[in-house]
Nucleic acid binder design. Structure first.
Length: 388
DNA sequence: TCTGGGGTCCTAGGACCC
DNA sequence: TCTGGGGTCCTAGGACCC
């Protein structure tokens, strides 16, 4: 079992299991409490997520889909309603239409809404909805919110703040601006102001194009041959460029990185190399050729590699890509037509229906997903069956 | 002995998020 | 045996320009 736990049920959290814990470390708990582990199932989660988000969109014209399981809704102009009651209807509707339970926090800023959401989730008596706006006990609520539970305060800042005697959200909100700015940059200052009820982090309603695209994986088994490494890097590169095309962008920088298993007591090596393309492109072979060249410069024999990845950067919109004198343009030629054709086929008939030979066929190095749950909503063969 | 000032761009590193 | 993957933003410092 190679699993790392990164989504935990509240029962598992109650047992004190931290996020990011490797599965093998809690083997005793798994046995004792009959815990079920599942490999990540992106097609199921992605599909259920968009069902939830579609439902939420019915309740406000302004919605920011923040992550696969979180969204911000702007309720300005809804003041004539009792917001708590309104959000109870939202919660109920999501549950009824998708089967997914949600909790909702209401606040004058995103950061306070996140605080409110923690309260909604934590205390049963609120039935999953809590409004912190103009709450008479707002100071008390901030006081019982540990400082590292504030959105924007992670482990490092958490440690630093505690060293300085700041243990909770209330204390953080009361620090002088100058000090916060100096020790946590303007990002931290925004967080503190948001805790005071001053909105500094805007709602982002349209999905911004990615500025960098990474595709990297840990191998299912150690890789110690150039050929296998070559295949895996080709595979990640192909996926990254496909993502690039999906957002109608082109890019001109590529980085390849490889590394050994840092947890193992054996010779360690990691390295990366970056190159620039002649002109911005989204043509997979342009990137593959460069990736192969880069890999040759960093690959060293004699190591057990655990990880490899490809990063694409210097991304711009396809339509604003400049022309150049080498006549290597992606847009307006056969290159784009060919890619469009491949993408269409792979969308229609499944990923990797057409792939590049350099990615290999067997993919012996790829990650195993032994505990995969069925793709209930996205695959005909795995639909749930009702038995009468 | 004296050695400008202001601006931009790029990169690496460090923080954060889920 | 076994330790994830994919993003963002900010800052400091160096290179370079006039």
């Amino acid at each position: 079992m190679t699993a790392v736990l990164f989504a935990l049920s509240k029962e598992l959290k109650a047992l004190g299991v931290p996020r990011g814990e490797p599965g093998f470390k809690i083997r005793h708990l798994i046995k004792k409490h009959d815990i079920k582990l599942f490999s990540s199932n992106y097609s199921l989660y992605g599909n259920m997520s968009s069902r939830v988000m579609d439902t939420l969109s019915q309740f406000s014209p302004d919605i920011e889909i923040y992550s696969i399981d979180e969204a911000f809704l702007l309720l300005n102009g809804f003041d004539y309603l009792n917001l708590t009651e309104y959000c109870k209807i939202i919660k109920q509707t999501v549950e009824q239409w998708t089967g997914i339970p949600v909790s909702i926090g209401i606040g004058p800023t995103k950061t306070l809404a996140k605080v409110a959401n923690r309260i909604a989730k934590k205390y049963k008596k609120f039935n999953g909805v809590f409004d912190i706006t103009d709450h008479p006990k707002i100071d008390k609520i901030l006081e019982i919110t540990e400082v590292e539970d504030v959105w924007g305060v992670g482990r490092q800042y958490g440690k630093m703040l505690r060293r300085n005697g700041i243990y909770n959200a209330l204390q953080l909100s009361m620090q002088p601006d100058g000090w916060i700015r100096k020790s946590m940059t303007v990002v931290g200052l925004k967080t503190a102001k948001e805790l005071r009820g001053i909105s500094c982090i805007d709602l982002e309603t349209d999905i911004p194009a990615k500025k960098q695209i990474v595709c990297s994986r840990s191998f299912g088994k150690p890789v110690d041959t150039f050929d296998e490494m070559f295949e895996s890097v080709s595979d990640y590169c192909t996926r990254a460029v496909a993502k690039l095309r999906r957002q109608h962008s082109v890019a001109s920088m590529i980085t390849v990185f490889i590394g050994t298993n840092r947890f193992k007591d054996e010779p360690q090596y990691s390295n990366s190399a970056t190159a620039r393309l002649l002109s911005p492109s989204a043509y997979t072979p342009d990137f593959l050729v460069t990736a192969h060249r880069l890999l040759k410069t960093i690959y060293k024999d004699g190591y057990n590699y655990k990880r490899a990845g490809v990063m694409i950067a210097d991304i711009m919109e396809e339509k604003s890509a400049p022309l150049n004198i080498f006549n290597t343009e992606y847009v307006g030629g056969n290159k784009k037509d060919l890619m469009d054709c491949i993408d269409t086929i792979n969308t229609r008939w499944g990923r990797d229906n057409i792939s590049f030979a350099s990615s290999g066929i067997k993919k012996s190095w790829s990650m195993r997903r032994e505990l995969l749950s069925p793709r209930f909503t996205t695959n005909w063969d795995e639909l749930p069956v009702a038995i009468a």
